[in-house]
Design a protein around this nucleic acid. Structure first.
Lengths: 351, 351
DNA sequence: ATGTCGCCTGTAAACGTTTACGGATGGGGG
DNA sequence: CCCCCATCCGTAAACGTTTACAGGCGACAT
């Protein structure tokens, strides 16, 4: 009792060999009588298969890891929400890693793939260094990267198109008559930070708007950083009339500061976020946001990985999920807001 | 190259026995010369320890499972955010299970403890059945339950006090002069649903308010259910002046419907949510909510489990986290709202 | 020179499975 | 009556570690 029954305990009690026990438990052809005895013994003992021993022999753990930069970021959680059921349905467990966007931690995760406690990995790195690429090339288990990766990297890859996403948002603001459009970005040494910054500059150029460095503010990807950056911006560029924020958290920080400063949203300043997280729909005023398809990307990544795990070989695949602008009150005014969730939230599962 | 180096490969190359290799890798006392040879061989081969084999021998996986009802629910995510770093710091990996509040799935998780895939489990069941209790008693690894469990159950247990929580909210509403206070509850066969319903009835009684069954509405714990319930309520009880919602998602659904119906919040109807999720602070108007300390409960649970894993024996422990009312615009009006996050969000990690 | 002691190291068993291989048994055909 | 074949089962090896135990060897004391 102290030490849980094993296949040996069962074999003894049923009076057969461990091989027979294993065969019965795996449903291999066996004489009825033997099967009966084994099953009876297993039931009486409350036997449960030791997954570790089984993994050692079979070289399969039925576990998959998901490494994200930050468990607190709703964009990653949206991915998680999609990844989890896909893997579960296929009989895999999900191991979670939160790397806090520290490159060393990500390398660590990649390294630990060699420990073989998971069959595969989905990773969403904010920065992609040389070391990342080397480790990816040497990875001993299939990996799917969510996010962009240099051309030619031999790895399955699900990317958003934040370039087009920013473009959609800037066009929208321009159409609304805004001309002093600022960008509140995250660190430019991150992949998304760089892409979004470049897209902003390009869009402004194409629309014939004067580029003004004072309109660009950099902070981290969190709400307090957004608040700080916008407070700073309002001092330097009082006539700003629109904010393109690099994610929703930044945008929420921006709303806080605008409210405190007595600027009306969207009348005085229009605000656009990115990622279209739950927070955007809930915020006050509700936040126009560029959806980069976090949910779709999570799902796609999980499916790509499953294919590899089920033996799918062949060339690395790249899936690109298109962006979508979700217009809400923070640019279009209050009349645009309504209980939109009815259309996409939990509508399955109806009796 | 095809099949990763093992301790044997190293032993051969270094010209020593596998025992020596193991000793070196584990930092046991060894002659300098041997250590040098082994390290050199290991480096050249890019050796990584096989965690599965190690677990089989050591009977420790350094993994812990967290089973929650729904990955989508921000209250669980708040727990997750605390649990993850605590476990990570102690060298444990986190395995995630989403049970969709299906009892059978939870039983399954409990059962799979026997597979010895994880060293311990943190679980937050919505309903606690007889089978749950039996499996808990028979569990082959330490378990911590987040949520209430019948008296006398021999299991570590971290509970919220939703009874007092509801009380705080109702008192608050009463102080504001509200007298027709409705309750939008989740299913009453869940532990929190039952507790919150009872607390509501009791609080109304103590305040000398007439109990009116029409004021109580039941749905599931999600936003659309909250919306439906409130739509229904407004028809039957047009003079309702306050809503006590059993969680934040329900409250958000309520806000949607109130807005659509042209009722002002809080002037016409005050709204209180529960769990004080991120969504409450972000919502429109910002939502007064009863914090049940999700974050603290997650942290406490992780710490309790770690103590057990580190050999802590003794009686089961019960930790109760006190509730706290967070007043925002949905009851106190807009002047109460400000960028509160500054006080508690990411203030560590300065510079 | 021999015995003793300590330090390293190697051999082998163990963790709990799965599975290749060969032996036993029984039935059917020659 | 003997042989062959099919069927079922048991023995043992393997997965990659950790670790108890014992053996080898040099140094030192006698």
């Amino acid at each position: 009792m102290a030490d849980g029954p094993t296949i040996n305990t069962i074999a003894e009690r049923a009076g057969v060999s461990i091989a027979s026990v294993s065969r019965v438990l795996n449903g291999l052809p066996t004489r009825q009588e033997t099967e009966r005895k084994v099953m009876a013994a297993a039931d009486e003992l409350g036997y449960v298969r030791n997954a570790v021993a089984r993994s050692l022999k079979s070289r399969r753990t039925h576990q998959v890891a998901f490494a994200m930069a930050d468990v607190g970021n709703p964009a990653y959680l949206a991915m998680l929400r999609q990844i989890q059921p896909v893997l579960k349905a296929a009989g895999y467990r999900l191991v979670l890693h939160s790397t806090d966007a520290v490159a060393a931690d990500e390398i660590d995760v990649l390294h630990s793939l060699g420990e073989r406690y998971v069959d595969g990995l989905i990773m969403s790195p904010l920065r992609v260094t040389e070391t990342h690429l080397e480790m990816l090339a040497a990875a001993r288990a299939p990996v799917v990267i969510i996010g962009s990766v240099p051309e030619g990297t031999r790895v399955d890859n699900v990317r958003a198109d934040s370039h087009t996403g920013v473009r959609l948002a800037i066009d929208h603001l321009h159409t609304l008559g805004r001309r002093r459009i600022a960008m509140i970005n995250g660190p430019v040494d991150t992949v998304p930070g760089a892409a979004r910054g470049a897209a902003y500059r390009e869009a402004l150029g194409d629309l014939g708007l004067r580029h003004d460095e004072a309109l660009v503010r950099i902070g981290d990807f969190y709400r307090p950083d957004g608040a700080r950056a916008v407070a700073d911006l309002l001092e330097r560029v009082p006539d700003v009339d629109a904010l393109m924020c690099a994610n929703d958290l930044i945008a929420l920080g921006a709303l806080d500061v605008l409210r405190a400063a007595g600027r009306r949203v969207p009348e005085d300043v229009a605000v656009v976020g990115m990622d279209d997280t739950d927070l955007a729909a809930a915020s006050w005023p509700s936040l126009t946001s560029v959806s980069l398809g976090s949910a779709e990307r999570g799902k796609a990544a999980a499916e790509l990985l499953l294919e590899r795990l089920q033996g799918g070989g062949g060339e690395p695949r790249v899936v690109t999920v298109p962006p979508r602008l979700v217009v809400r009150a923070s640019t279009a005014g209050f009349e645009a807001a309504g209980p939109e969730y009815v259309h996409h939230h939990r509508e399955e599962g109806g009796k």
